[in-house]
Design a binder for these strands. Structure first.
Length: 426
RNA sequence: GGAGGGAUGGCCGAGUGGACGAAGGCGGUAGUCUUGAAAACUACUGUGGCGUCAUGCCACCGGGGGUUCGAAUCCCUCUCCCUCCGCCA
């Protein structure tokens, strides 16, 4: 959510930002109109309430002084004021609801240096690392490798739960576990993150806090009877860890990391990437979440992104960093980098991490504040998050990059201690 | 799933219709005293909104709704917590 005061005072900058985002349908003008109505009504209601407060106090006094007749006359007038208040309050309630609804549908404003373009074609490769491996045989896609090695069972996944589900088996399941544990260990012991194990189901208000609702309900799974939503990423429960809190001085920055399943309906991409495990309804992800002071936001985004990149580097996988253009930026992000690993089998760049700076956009929605100093007024924190890293895709990357001519797969060196010393999956 | 009890400021806790934004205590901050510290004493100590920016007004006692001239207090409802029973990893 944006700051309404800023919006009022910077109407031109706001309009410009929405143009840069190619989000001219965002209801920002409506929000500003409703805000004006709202303040007008509020002034009226509050003036009447002030009158009623003093009047009601006076009634009490009159009774105590035994002047019952004057009291009941005043009572009559207060009743009329009460009716007026009720009427105006009803109107105010409607306006405020509409105002709030509009505010929730206005996207975050991009950082000034984000490349401007209407869609992902405008994304910019800002960095490349490693050389794609030269194969002396045609590299196979992961679904062929995994099936031959009997480490992913696609058919039975579908039998149990339908398309876009799979079963990891034997060394496949263990490889996933090894990756998760190694990722966590690096973040915890080397990057200063605190591990958390959060709920995988959350209430509506948490989804609103991170910006998944109200706009993206059709991408989420939910309980049919109770107010529970399955998380599409650990970002949701972990960011909401501090919702409605004021963090005391000296407790920022806070870095958290969580390995959780993620559940996504993938309705919008029906028919896309149906082979293999690139796009599925349930997957594991290690997610990093930061709560920081505003002035450190940009450098925290860089170090967060580096925390993810370092893992790919130590796995010796070629990757590139892509800066996301305005038109491709997610609703809540002010700036975002994707990390893409080269998959020689499918011959494509796989997005294995998304690192975003949200500034105070989520903090306003979830009401997460901090005190800049002892006794100072609370301010909104900045939040950031990034995958570190996303699982099924990292399995793809390892299988396809480390495959050998005979279909076996070499286990990357850093993972061997996590695989019981196994050097080759065959 | 059943029965009962509860939710008040950073924390504890009083408050069953009007002088309550809320007693008292703890904690915190500042001052007095002291070489310094402790103790004692004194003062201050929530959040947000609107602004004719005035020592101004409004809202907030778990959330929402109702009764009333007036609600922390009465009624309804939801959420959460605790105790006991049942079930269970």
């Amino acid at each position: 959510m944006l700051d309404i005061r800023w919006m009022r005072e910077n109407r031109e900058a706001l309009a410009e930002a929405m143009r840069r985002l190619y989000a001219e349908d965002a209801p920002w003008e409506r929000a500003l109109e409703l805000d004006e109505q709202r303040r007008k009504l509020l002034a009226q209601v509050e003036a009447l309430r002030a009158e009623r407060n003093t009047g009601s106090k006076r009634i009490g006094e009159l009774y105590r002084e035994g002047r019952a007749e004057e009291a009941s006359a005043l009572k009559e007038r207060m009743r009329e004021i009460g009716d007026q208040i009720a009427q105006l309050e009803e109107e105010l309630r409607r306006v405020e609801e509409a105002f709030h609804e509009a505010m929730l549908r206005i996207p975050n404003i991009p950082e000034p240096d984000v490349p401007v373009a209407p869609d992902e074609a405008g994304n910019v490769v800002v960095k490349e690392w490693g050389e794609p491996r030269a194969f002396d045989f045609p590299p196979r896609p992961h679904w062929e490798l995994a099936e031959a090695l009997d480490i992913i069972d696609f058919e039975r996944g579908v039998k149990i739960a339908g398309s876009r589900f799979y079963v990891l088996k034997g060394a496949g399941a263990r490889l996933q576990r090894a990756l998760i544990n190694w990722f966590l260990d690096v973040h915890i012991h080397e990057h200063g993150y605190i591990e958390v194990y959060p709920p995988f189901m959350v209430r509506t208000h948490c989804m609103v806090g991170t910006g998944n609702l109200p706009k993206f309900a059709d991408t989420l799974y939910r309980d049919a009877e109770e107010d529970y939503w399955l998380i599409p990423t650990a970002e949701v429960p972990v960011t909401n860890l501090h919702r409605e809190e004021i963090l005391e001085p000296g407790t920022l920055p806070r870095y958290y990391v969580a390995a959780t399943p993620c559940f996504r309906r993938e309705k919008v991409s029906a028919g896309k990437d149906v082979r293999g495990i690139k796009r599925v309804h349930q997957f594991e992800k290690v997610e990093m979440v930061k709560f920081v002071e505003p002035h450190t936001g940009r450098e925290e985004l860089e170090s967060l992104t580096r925390n993810a990149e370092e893992l790919v580097e130590r796995l010796e996988l070629p990757y590139r960093r892509v800066e996301i253009a305005t038109g491709d930026l997610s609703f809540v992000a002010a700036k975002k980098y994707d990390i893409e690993v080269w998959a020689p089998g499918c011959q494509e760049w796989l997005e294995v991490s998304s690192c975003s700076l949200f500034r105070d956009f989520q903090a306003r929605r979830a009401n997460i504040r901090y005190r800049p100093g002892e006794g100072a007024r609370p301010e909104y924190v900045y939040t950031l998050n990034g995958s570190g890293l996303a699982l099924p895709r990292m399995i793809i990357a390892v299988l396809e990059n480390y495959q050998q001519a005979d279909g076996s797969v070499v286990v990357p060196e850093v993972l061997r201690p996590y695989m019981g010393g196994v050097e080759v999956i065959r």
